[in-house]
Design a binder for these strands. Sequence first.
DNA 1: AGTGCTTACATAAGCACTGTTACGATGCCG
DNA 2: CGGCATCGTAACAGTGCTTATGTAAGCACT
Lengths: 166, 166
Amino acid sequence: MAEDHPLDPTQQSLWRPLRLLQASMDADIARIYAEARIDGLKPSFAMELLRLHAAGPMTITELAESVGRTHSALSQKVAAMRSAGWVQTIAGDDGRSKKVTLTDKARGVVGRLAAEWRATEAALTDIEAESPYPLSRVVSDIERALERKSFRDRIAEKLAEDPAWG
Amino acid sequence: MAEDHPLDPTQQSLWRPLRLLQASMDADIARIYAEARIDGLKPSFAMELLRLHAAGPMTITELAESVGRTHSALSQKVAAMRSAGWVQTIAGDDGRSKKVTLTDKARGVVGRLAAEWRATEAALTDIEAESPYPLSRVVSDIERALERKSFRDRIAEKLAEDPAWG
DNA sequence: AGTGCTTACATAAGCACTGTTACGATGCCG
DNA sequence: CGGCATCGTAACAGTGCTTATGTAAGCACT
């Protein structure tokens, strides 16, 4: 009998709704991209293209650092973007490095890309305004709380207190 | 021209920090699981195992509905859980269906599984308490806002207002 | 009983995404 | 020259889903 069992902790969860919420918003963003029908443009390219547009040509390694990935990951991404016609790689100052630059095709769409990004942010701002609690504050508060003590350490501490964990 | 020195919209983003925050918290949860070293237990199994523990044996289809996936996805997941020794499938009332039930091995760890879940929630509650703005309220406020108008529609509206979208 | 529809499940193949490790090639610099 | 930095690429890892197909059981109707 289910009533004998402990309550399902997954039923009164805050973490899960947060995940689901974000997943559904992510899906909506993906939908916007899909509807925009910019041929061959993957949403995951947007960040890099906007960065390159804003900061100008960069080497692979610079780009990798700027988005927090390994050079290898970025090398592959740049290759994909290149074969989709969004970027070119041209010789850099240093013979070893190559500057990644936007193609004309890319320059033709970054405006819309930026518009999409702004629209997403604006929509989020509107949503935020419909709640008395500012999302941006909550995010930065949580970030600061995690700087004081990491989420992992917090969970580990709670676990240590739980007799069922023993 | 603005295009000579374009602002990078990705630099003043709320959406991205939110994603990164959640990703890093997710990674911490995964780390807790990894440290627990419950042999062969994937974090993605936890939900289903706790559900089964709380609600008792269910068919694949019931389980699929309960977590919002297709039966095929769950069929594969159950197969993986079965071969890892967490569940058994026994004949159901209906000859077509099978009840998924926890094994003794699984019953031996659901307590710790539930403890992990509770610890995660408790850690989150503590973090929430360190901010004057309740995360849970923000989440439900946003959910309600999105019921009124979907994120997709909001973005689309913002886009329509943006001359750069053309 | 036979026919055909529906339900429940299993399985195979494939895809999208993301990343890693390892290795090699090339160029820079002391 | 030797060692380091930069980049490219191949091979692989792995999750988690979808689609398509197959199989078996129930079920309604005749």
